[in-house]
């Protein structure tokens, strides 16, 4: 890989992340189906590599209120995985999870509901990590998930900053989650550290 210039190297990184995203989304659909009731499907993800300034608009505006669940990676890999969805999507998933009628509107999420969303984010992150493990043989553990509900731009600034050290763009994976009373747009932001990128590459080319 010594012959590669930095631009080519960056392009290659995108390819690798795209492959991980595809496998990860398949895993996520499987995990969600066992967590939620009824038929759950996840559409083929749209993977976009966006400039930071366009990131917030891509998920309906920087001021839009979203739920963000973040886990940090440990062991072989370091980095961050974040799962984001808008409040309405989160509401739909909670209604399904707690067996409530589809249109029920939650005014303010309870501790139990927040904890359920946290777990959902954790499961989704796990699906992507297992994709990395499958493809590379590397193992990654996650920290306890953390949740925040705030403006999309503000929440996304956390992974964007983490990723900002290696790129001017960020990888966004968007996929529609559909099921009983659920029409959610799931947004993933995947940000391995530079060192972890190298590990992933070395594992793939070993």
């Amino acid at each position: 890989m010594t012959e590669m210039n930095s631009e080519e190297y960056r392009e290659l990184r995108i390819d690798v992340l795209t492959e991980i995203s595809n496998v990860g989304t398949g895993n996520a659909a499987h995990s969600l189906s066992s967590m939620l009731s009824g038929d759950i499907s996840i559409e083929v993800p749209v993977i976009r590599f966006l400039e930071f300034k366009d990131l917030a608009e891509a998920i309906d505006g920087a001021e839009n209120t979203v739920v963000g669940i973040m886990v940090n990676l440990q062991r072989d890999l370091n980095g961050m995985v974040m799962f984001l969805m808008d409040i309405k999507s989160a509401n739909g998933i909670l209604n399904n999870l707690f067996g409530r009628p589809a249109g029920h509107v939650i005014e303010e999420f309870s501790e139990m509901e927040l904890s359920a969303l946290n777990e959902l984010g954790n499961v989704m992150a796990g699906a992507y990590l297992s994709a990395i493990s499958t493809l590379t043989g590397l193992s990654a553990a996650t920290t306890v998930p953390e949740i925040a509900i705030d403006m999309a731009g503000a929440i996304m600034s956390v992974p964007a900053i983490a990723f900002g050290k290696i790129s001017d763009r960020v990888l966004l994976i968007q996929s529609e989650i559909k099921g009983e009373g659920i029409n959610a747009m799931g947004n993933f932001i995947l940000t391995p550290t530079e060192e972890s990128f190298d590990k992933i590459f070395n594992a793939l080319w070993a």
């Binding site: 403006m151 503000a154 929440i155 996304m156 600034s157 956390v158």
Partner: peptide, 17 residues
């Protein structure tokens, strides 16, 4: 970006930035 009166200038959803 820059801005000139009577315009205003904004940035949306600042977090850790």
């Amino acid at each position: 970006n820059v801005c000139r009166v009577p315009d205003r200038i904004t940035t949306l959803g600042l977090g850790s930035c």
